[in-house]
Design a protein around this nucleic acid. Structure first.
Ligand SMILES: [Zn+2]
Ligand SMILES: [Zn+2]
Length: 150
DNA sequence: TGATACGTATCA
DNA sequence: TGATACGTATCA
């Protein structure tokens, strides 16, 4: 049994600035970052395992192909809405005037789809459930009112 | 809550 | 690589 070689040493202090409130939140944050395969933390762990002669996360992933990739994916503009079709910046909106530090697309060109928050908008099932509950309650109340007037 | 700043995903 | 601009922490 070969002895594992020494690792690359402790991770850099400033690898992550965890400025969240609770320990619980910090723990969750670390778990997430461990699962992001391109995060500095995952890269460090990968390097450590390789240098120590242990298994590689990449090969493990290649074999199992079940790694949950929590890498934050960016949404893309729809390319078809009015703002998307606009070709020139207005030059007068806050984003145009603050392009250097703001790093945002012109407000006149911001895709309608991307204006909505990611979780927002596709909750039709939830609203359907609320509607069902509401109508059920209305039905019960209505029956009670009918009974009272008998 | 909207405005702002900034890290960085994405693409050419 | 540099340019663009999405996502989000932070602030007021
Ligand atoms: Zn503009
Ligand atoms: Zn669009």
């Amino acid at each position: 049994m070969p002895r594992p070689r020494a690792g690359p040493g402790p991770p850099p202090e400033d690898m992550y600035d965890l400025s969240m409130d609770t320990m619980e939140a910090q723990s969750f944050c670390m778990q997430r970052k461990c699962l992001e395969k391109s995060s500095p933390l995952s890269k460090y762990i990968e390097a450590e395992h390789q240098q120590a002669g242990l298994f590689s996360l990449s090969s493990l992933e290649a074999i199992t192909d079940v790694t949950v990739d929590l890498q934050k994916k960016r949404r893309k503009k729809c390319g078809a809405c009015v703002p998307c079709l606009r070709k020139v910046n207005c030059g007068t909106c806050a984003n145009c005037l603050n392009r250097k530090t703001g790093k945002q697309i012109c407000k006149e060109r911001k895709c309608e789809k991307l204006k909505k928050r990611k979780s927002e908008g596709n909750a039709s099932e939830v609203w359907c459930a609320f509607g069902f509950i509401f109508l059920s309650l209305c039905n019960i109340v209505w029956k009670d009112i009918i009974l009272m007037w008998r």
